[in-house]
Design a binder for these strands. Structure first.
Lengths: 108, 108
DNA sequence: TTTGTATATCGCAATATTACGATGATATTT
DNA sequence: AAATATCATCGTAATATTGCGATATACAAA
C-alpha cells in the first residue's frame, strides 16, 4: 500500500523510524553534515552545495524540519537553518541506545 | 520521480542513507529489537510477534538482508535470522561518528 | 508418495517519495 | 513603485515503498 501501519507499533519504534528517515536519504545526510561542519547556520548556500534544484533542497529541508532535527531562522529574504540540538541529542540517545544493546549471537 | 540521484553523492553518504533505511520503518525497528533481545536467532517467530502478514514480514527481512544488517541461516523448512555483527558495528560507527561531530551552533 | 510446515516470491493496489519547473510570497534595494 | 533576491509551495511525473492474498518452493514427516 505504501502506508505504514504506525498504529500497531510502539511510540518508541515509530519515533526511531522517523528519526532514521532524517538520515535515510543521501541528500539529507549531506545537508546535516554541512550544517554540522559550518557551525554557523546555512541558508540557500545549501542549494549551491548540493547538485539538486532549489525546490528539491527546500523539500528536504522541510522534511528535516518536520522531524525536528533542524530548525530555521527566518531573516527575510533569507532563512538560516541549523541543527536542533535537543533533537540531535534525542537521535544520539535513540540510535546509541539501540545499537549498544546488541552483544553477541548464539547461533549463525 | 521517487528515484534518488545516488550518483551525485559520496559513497559514504549513500551508505549511511542505506544503513538508516534499516531503521526507517517501525516494523524493521521491531525486528531488529527482537533479534537483539533474543540472542539466539529467530525464525518465523517474528511473524507471530509482529501484527503484519507473513508476506510483509518476509519482505522486511529481505530488505534488512539486502542492507546486510541481518543474515539468515537456512535449516529447512525454517530460516534462522540474526544480527550481522560486522554490519551492526558499521552502523554503530557510521551513526556514532556522524552524531558525535556536532558540537554547538553559532546562531539560531 | 502424499501431506504438512515454513518461507519466499508474485501480482496487485494504494500511498509515499523524489525531483523539478513554474509560480507565489516576502522583504530589501533601487 | 518597480525590480531584485531568497525561499516556499504547487502541480506534475516517475519511481519506490508498504501491505497482503495467493501461489510457489523446499524439505520433513507420515
Amino acid at each position: 500500500m505504501g502506508v505504514t501501519k504506525t498504529e500497531v507499533f510502539t511510540a518508541e519504534q515509530n519515533r526511531i523510524a522517523e528519526l532514521a528517515k532524517a538520515f535515510a536519504h543521501p541528500a539529507r545526510v549531506a545537508i546535516l553534515q554541512h550544517l554540522v561542519a559550518t557551525k554557523s547556520c546555512i541558508c540557500g548556500e545549501l542549494v549551491d552545495e548540493l547538485p539538486l534544484s532549489q525546490a528539491t533542497v527546500s523539500q528536504h529541508l522541510k522534511e528535516l524540519s518536520r522531524i525536528g532535527i533542524i530548525k530555521g531562522n527566518v531573516q527575510p529574504p533569507r532563512v538560516c537553518y541549523c541543527i536542533n540540538e535537543s533533537v540531535w541529542e534525542e537521535a544520539k540517545a535513540a540510535f546509541g541506545g539501540l545499537l549498544a544493546t546488541f552483544t553477541v549471537n548464539e547461533c549463525c
